[in-house]
Amino acid sequence: MKILFRILVILVVASLIGGAIFAAVNIAGTLSQRSLSQRDGRDGGEERDGANLLFLPFGMFQNLVIIAIIATFYLNVRTGRDSENPVNT
C-alpha cells in the first residue's frame, strides 16, 4: 500500500510537471505561430526508422565518453574546491 502511494505521488508530480510543460509549449506555440503541423515533408537531418546496430556500440561509447568527461570535470572542480576549503568538507 505504501509503495502504491509512493508510485501515485511520483506519477502525480510527473503529470503536474508534464501538464505545465505541455501548456507552456502550446501557449508559446500559439503566440509565436510557429506550429509547422501542415508541413508534409521532413528535414534531412531526422532519424530514420531503420536500425544500424553495427554502429550502436560506437554511439554508446561516444555518449559514455561525453558523460565521463562531464563527470570528471565536475569531480576535479569539487576536489579542487574541497582542498582549498577543507573546513567545508
Binding site: R48, D49, N52, L56, N63
Partner: peptide, 12 residues
C-alpha cells in the same frame, strides 16, 4: 546510453 543513439538502435 542506447537511447541517446536512436540512429543506431532504430526508432521503434
Amino acid at each position: 546510453l542506447i537511447l541517446m543513439d536512436p540512429r543506431s538502435s532504430g526508432i521503434a
